[in-house]
Nucleic acid binder design. Structure first.
Lengths: 237, 237
DNA sequence: CGCGGCTTTGATGTTCATCAAGTAAAGTGG
DNA sequence: CCACTTTACTTGATGAACATCAAAGCCGCG
């Protein structure tokens, strides 16, 4: 919650498709939802803008209404960042640490123009303590999320460079854009930060994939030409 | 919850120092504790015994009263396992996935003779839904735990072999045994599975540490001879 | 006692990081 | 708007880190 970003209304009236209401529908009744509305706010961040700085106090629970953001650990002194995950709409952002740490342990910034909603943490905590079903739902969400994060790390660690790059390309194609043609929302350097590689090697492997007719590359635009082969490489490491 | 292990009583009377009661004291009143006692059970597993098999239905919440256990992903067909973490007394075991998956996604086995306590998941869920403070406490525990797991993976991935092995030695010395002399509860192979290395390289690095007078090795017995140097290697990767 | 798994060391090859150098793209200030 | 600076991208050459293969000793266990 920077000074940056453009504040936008985010409540039942102005934000009818509000992700929060959808995600937790059934767990909260209308009066409870209305109660939380009071403590909700929203902001639009433009591409590249910081949303959370590591070390800031955790005051709000966040989720992404639209756009794309990256969660990362800033690299110490000259070292490059380490991207933990990329969150898409409906995702809770930085859910990991908000209940265990008074300060954010990760930074978050926008990869695309993003609409982020905030709920004051105190109000959310009270609701969790009041409504058991809601608490259970939260537990399940955190549990699932941390499983995924951990599994991602294990997968990356167990693959060679080609497998990692193939996985990332498939991730964008299937999980984010649902298309075999898409524009990369990240730089080659950021891909490297995401899969524990060096920028040069990300480029090298991508060029190799192009040479082998697996993908087409035009700057940031990627087209998958041989899905099966790419999936095979992604699986076999 | 295998057929293995020796059942032992685990309730307020027979298990006065029961970890559960200690961990969650203050969150549950005596009648609530008594209510959960009905759904508690305990087992003693001997060194090497399996406690949980990946794929089994999640029916209980577990925590470790005494001993030492490893949480791991069994390796597919000939490949070696991958150890996620080592849990010590007071730790909740496999807390990660019990609320998000109907089946365990990890296996658990005993590294030392271990006393494990079980609480029926249904009863625990009901208590979570009933008692908001208890729910919040659980959320904090899961959140903290998954932060640690993820951070461990990041640390490992960012270090070279020497740094990884140094970290593991320091982990056993400081977090598990509180002593500069201890007996390794794991094989060289298991250390390798824990820090993404090959057994041969774990041995090589340990031999190098011995040669450099950083540690003494006699089979499984390790003595740290130069703590500062080891900490430096662990930090700098 | 012999079998299988763990441990150890050495030799060798692969994977990857690093260094270097050049082009393209994108932002910056006059 | 153009010169200028910075950042992203790309390719090649080299060496370091690590995996793999091989061989032998050790230890516990049936």
């Amino acid at each position: 919650m920077d000074g940056n970003g453009i504040s936008v209304a985010c409540n039942g009236k102005n934000c009818p498709g509000c992700v929060f209401n959808n995600v937790f529908s059934g767990k909260l009744d209308s009066s409870e939802l209305a109660e939380l509305e009071q403590f909700k706010s929203g902001k639009i961040y433009s591409k590249g803008e910081m949303i959370i700085h590591q070390g800031e106090s955790v005051t709000h629970f966040m989720y992404l209404n639209s756009g794309l953001v990256k969660l990362y650990v800033p690299g110490k002194s000259g070292l490059s960042d380490r991207i933990i995950s990329i969150s898409k709409p409906m995702d809770c952002i930085g859910l990991m640490s908000i209940f265990s740490n008074p300060q954010y342990i990760y930074s978050v910034s926008a990869l695309e123009d993003s609409h982020v909603c905030f709920i004051e943490l105190d109000a959310l905590r009270k609701m969790i303590e009041k409504n058991g079903k809601f608490a259970m739902c939260f537990l399940e969400k955190i549990s699932l999320l941390s499983d995924h994060f951990l599994n991602d790390r294990i997968q990356i660690a167990s693959k060679h460079m080609r497998g990692r790059v193939a996985s990332i390309i498939l991730f964008f194609a299937s999980s984010i854009y649902n298309s075999n043609t898409f524009e990369l929302p990240v730089s080659r350097k950021e891909i490297a930060e995401l899969v524990d590689m060096r920028t040069e090697n990300v480029i090298r492997v991508m060029s190799e994939f192009r040479h082998d007719q697996l993908i087409d590359i035009e700057g940031k635009n990627i087209t998958i030409k041989n899905l099966e082969a790419l999936e095979k490489i992604s699986k076999l490491g």
